[in-house]
Design a protein around this nucleic acid. Structure first.
Length: 958
RNA sequence: GCAGGGGUGCCCGAGCUGGCCAAAGGGGACAGGCUUAGGACCUGUUGGCGUAGGCCUACCAGGGUUCGAAUCCCUGCCCCUGCACCA
């Protein structure tokens, strides 16, 4: 691990040298941003990954010579901290515990957390510190918070712009609402019912003596199959007045409906028992239906009034059957004759089912009575089937032949047109309970402002924007396409929270996902803001900066025109944004909004160019969660391991878009690896045996010895692989190549050169190679472990800061396949010798090695050209070319090739005789016996030489 | 339900434009070296069998295409993620 003191030293040097402050210049630029954090708690290792990825990329690109901008800001907009402040105020033990023990906030600070503004101030400054300690190359001059007045002006401009373009509308919207707190509630505010959706039911008005019995349903298309209505005679019902109509609904349902309808009030109680036996009129068919008693009707759900479709609703059918048997009840209301005459009616055709599918379902699920738990499943099953496959049948008039789905929409429309329909929202599941313990309801907020993501023209633009972008990983593109199509109008205004108010209605705040869509543009000018009065930031100003729209009036504010020009140029230099990084779960909202808003506001040449999506973080295989205490804070991890280790672990254990798993054991493993890396320089120093000046070893040394050539080939290959991987944000792959496999190469190299200690030329070459490798390796590792690299770079005579030194270039010519193959032959031979030794279990004195004769190479080449293990064809061609006179031997060998050739990559003929002779000391040392290489089998008592194959010399051990 | 992504050796995970794949790399385990010992480090082993570098069985299950499949196609089973007013 890197010494923390050392890390802090370099962090200071970086800050003081301002090397990561980026301003426009002649170089090519890269602008990369990552979602700014919501500072409501301390940073954990999950955040560590999120912010290390762009830093690694920024460092990499900077070394490649790009002018890189990597800014950071704080997204303080929204309601959660307001809730936290409230809970701190009333000393909620759960909240206090988390902030004291998980987020490690000192006692005297917690007291100030009753102010939400203070919470975000506190944590954003903590984030700033921790980010610095992670070695991030952020241009801090551009830092801001989203409630800064300057930023608010920018958001106001953006919203006015959208409104001008007709992309904002006002309307109503159903939300989860706590009547006790008098506030909408988000999922995180719930005790129970997290993630429960809100469904839309259709209200159908059945006329009863000038008033309406109002039933709620998901299936208005079944109005054609109604036989009766159900009321729960044991529940209380009320008459309510609404828009000059009188509705009869359950009293318990009123609490919910009250929140959704205007001008609604209870007129009087009404006893349901008195309604039983009366008749109502079906608004669609004008048929008369009797009202019947049913204990299964839930007075809290919908309106507490249900219409009965026994042909297609198992619950209705079974309730009807139950009632027919219940003589006492029937006598009580005097409805026996009429009830007995009711028959279920089929009106939806469903393949594979009878005319009365409800009956089939009751049999299938073996439903005994209306209290049977299988009833719900039977109902759901039939609902799904008819919804997806059902077709309107006879008894449905003009709708016959329509798919259920389509018929439903048309019927809803018709009901509304004839004023016999309405809408009611209900939770998909219950209960939904607020943290305060109160049952939540669905409330309709009116005056709600929406961003019109449903607008087809806007969607088109956004698709267009997406088409021009790189998406990493590419599979996520399908998600984007899906979400852009699926997004409906987004409620963008809120009553509570921090942030910017809607410029045209100060009662509303702009919601956090809506104020963070194009702020990347603001980074390009934020560093100028400290000298500017926010009141000067009017719309003309932003139009000028971001859209190049020159204002007519000469000076439209008090800002120095020179500065304005500079800002405009700066924006035009950095924009468009090259990369946007954010989490996987934000694809459907934040990242999609990002595209929507850019395409709406900016011209095409300013549209974003790329998106990288992050996976999540696990801790020892489990989901991280601060509320459960299953979390590692970044600051603690820095204290334990140092930031280089954390960076290296986070970047190497998974690609950015995959889930990473923080495992203590593996982190320790990484820590040891990094120590090895650092100690490697000492070994090089020892071999080099005089002062190293890396600056003098930037060019590839000239070498003759194969193992040295091999090492250089590997180095170049690793540089190439790592560079290509980093271009695509594949940090894990980049590290596999530049760290783990590179280490293996070096291990192998060290192992091999032990046998070269007597050859003076070889030693001189090795020295040069090792120093060269050290210089390359340090530079390859800078993006990942910058602190330790600076330290080594300085120690071994690198010029200046390695963070801004050139990224190593690779030379394809040095990646000599034959050299690599030659080395492979050597160590495979060594391995084979050992395997044979093990199997025959003898201690050999001499090992004879026979290389392949030339004709076998020719045959191999023929086979390779044919490309298939087609022995006949190989033979034919071999005989034609007359590669060898012994046809029997050709046949024998051709057969062998048939089996073997596909296992070996043919890279051309290699002079095995000299390759092996060059490595004879190594081979002998490994085998612990004399090794003799033969190009002609002058000594071959067992005839083993016949087995020799290209790349696979024959062996005889004695 | 809709949409997207998966199931690989003790664990994590690469490979998945078909043949250098008994399958990279890491972690763990085991053995040897080093060490007073432990740790660290280095080397090797980590599907089975084998007195010559080989053979057999293997990449969720079953079927197919092919000279050849972890990789392509079909079927089944199982898992993960998102689905809205919430950062």
């Amino acid at each position: 691990m890197t010494d923390i003191k050392v890390e802090e030293k370099w962090q200071r040097i970086w800050q003081e040298s301002n090397i990561f402050q980026s301003d426009p210049n002649d170089k090519k630029k890269i602008f990369v941003t990552v979602a700014y954090p919501y500072p409501s708690g301390a940073m954990h290792i999950g955040h560590g990954r999120t912010y290390t990825v762009p830093d690694v990329y920024a460092r990499f690109k900077r070394m490649q010579g790009f002018n890189v901008l990597f800014p950071m800001a704080w997204h303080v907009t929204g309601a959660p901290v307001v809730g936290i402040a409230k809970r701190i105020k009333r000393h909620d033990p759960w909240t206090m515990d988390i902030y004291k023990n998980i987020h490690k906030v000192p006692e005297e600070e917690i007291e100030k957390f009753t102010d939400p503004n203070y919470i975000v101030e506190y944590f954003s400054s903590e984030y700033h510190d921790v980010m610095t300690r992670m070695g991030y190359t952020i241009d801090w001059r551009r830092e801001f918070k989203t409630f800064d007045p300057h930023y608010q002006k920018f958001i106001e401009w953006q919203f006015r712009k959208l409104k001008e373009k007709g992309l904002v509308r006002i309307g109503e919207h159903p939300v989860k609402y706590c009547p006790e707190c008098e506030n909408p509630v988000g999922d995180h505010d719930l005790l129970e019912g997290e993630g429960v959706g809100i469904n839309e039911l259709t209200l159908v008005k059945f006329e009863l003596e000038g008033e309406y019995l109002v039933a709620a349903t998901y299936r208005p298309e079944t109005l054609f199959g109604v036989t009766n209505l159900w009321l729960n005679p044991d529940s209380e019902y009320v008459k309510v007045k609404i828009n000059n109509e009188v509705w009869i609904i359950a009293k318990n349902a009123y609490g919910n409906i009250f929140n959704q309808k205007k001008d609604i009030s209870i007129v009087s109680d009404i006893d349901a028992k008195n309604l039983i036996g009366k008749h109502v009129e079906n608004p669609l068919t004008s048929l008369e239906h009797i009202i019947l008693p049913a204990p299964f009707v839930d007075p809290e759900y919908g309106t507490g009034v249900v219409y009965s479709v026994p042909g297609h609703a198992p619950a209705d059918l079974i309730a009807l059957l139950d009632l027919k048997k219940d003589k006492i009840e029937l006598e009580k209301y005097g409805i026996n004759d009429e009830v007995q005459s009711i028959k279920a009616m089929g009106m939806i055709k469903l393949e594979g089912y009878s005319e009365i599918p409800a009956e089939d379902m009751i049999k299938k699920f073996d439903v005994k009575n209306q209290n049977d738990s299988n009833l719900k499943e039977a109902t759901n099953e039939l609902y799904k089937l008819e919804h997806s496959k059902g077709v309107m049948d006879k008894n449905t008039g003009d709708y016959q032949g329509l798919r259920v789905n389509d018929a439903r929409d048309e019927i809803i429309k018709l009901l509304n047109d004839i004023k016999k329909g309405d809408i009611l929202f209900e939770f998909a599941e219950r209960p939904v309970i607020c943290r305060c313990g109160t049952k939540c309801v669905v409330k309709i907020l009116d005056d709600q402002w929406f961003l019109k993501y449903s607008d087809e023209g806007w969607k088109e633009l956004t698709y267009h924007c997406l088409d021009g972008m790189k998406i990493i990983p590419e599979e996520v593109r399908a998600n984007f396409e899906y979400y852009i199509g699926w997004l409906q109008d987004w409620a963008c205004s809120r009553r509570i929270g921090l942030g910017t108010r809607l410029p045209w209605n100060k009662d509303w705040l702009i919601e956090p996902l809506s104020d963070s869509t194009i702020y990347m543009a603001y980074y390009t000018i934020s560093k100028y803001m400290k000298d500017i009065d926010p009141e000067d930031l009017n719309d003309q100003f932003f139009d000028d900066i971001f859209l190049g729209l020159k204002s007519n009036s000469e000076s439209f504010n008090n800002i120095n025109p020179e500065i304005t020009k500079e800002m405009r140029n700066e924006f035009n230099y950095w924009y468009p944004l090259d990369w946007r990084l954010s989490a996987k779960d934000l694809v459907g909202n934040h990242l999609s909004f990002h595209l929507f808003h850019h395409s709406a506001i900016f011209p095409m040449d300013k549209w974003p160019r790329g998106i990288v999506v992050f996976g999540m973080g696990l801790l020892e295989g489990n989901k991280m969660s601060s509320s459960k205490g299953n979390i590692v804070m970044l600051e603690d991890a820095i204290e334990t391991y140092g930031s280089d280790v954390i960076r290296l672990f986070l970047m190497s254990s998974a690609e950015p878009w995959q889930d990473f798993d923080w495992r203590e054991n593996e982190v320790k493993g990484i820590s040891k690896r990094l120590e090895w890396f650092s100690e490697f320089s000492l070994r090089v120093q020892k071999i080099y045996d005089s002062e190293i000046c890396l600056e003098d070893h930037k060019t590839t040394p000239k070498v003759e010895i194969p193992i040295n050539k091999w090492m250089l080939a590997q180095v170049n290959m690793r540089i190439m692989e790592a560079t290509e991987a980093l271009e695509g944000f594949q940090t894990r792959k980049a590290l596999q190549d530049s760290f783990f496999l590179f280490k293996k190469d070096i291990d192998h190299f060290f192992y091999r050169i032990e046998h070269e200690s007597e050859n003076e030329t070889a030693i001189q070459e090795i020295r040069e190679v090792m120093v060269y490798v050290l210089g390359i390796w340090i530079r390859l590792m800078v993006p990942f472990v910058p602190h330790i690299c600076e330290e080594l770079w300085e120690k071994y005579g690198g010029n200046g800061l390695v963070s801004i030194t050139e990224w190593p270039e690779y030379n394809v010519d040095l990646m000599d396949e034959k050299i690599q193959k030659g080395e492979e032959i050597v160590y495979r031979l060594s391995r084979d010798i050992n395997e044979i030794k093990k199997v025959i279990n003898i201690k050999p004195s001499k090992i004879h090695v026979y290389v392949s004769p030339e004709w076998k190479w020719k045959l191999f080449e023929i086979a390779n050209n044919i490309g298939k293990p087609d022995i006949g064809k190989i033979m034919q061609e071999a005989i034609k070319q007359n590669v060898h006179d012994n046809k029997k031997e050709i046949a024998e060998f051709a057969k062998k090739i048939g089996r073997e050739m596909t296992k070996i990559k043919y890279t051309g003929m290699i002079d095995e005789y000299s390759t092996l002779n060059n490595s004879i000391k190594f081979l002998a040392g490994e085998a612990d016996a004399d090794v003799i290489i033969y190009d002609k089998p002058t000594y071959d008592p067992k005839g083993k030489s016949r087995k020799a194959m290209p790349y696979k010399p024959a062996i005889y051990i004695e």
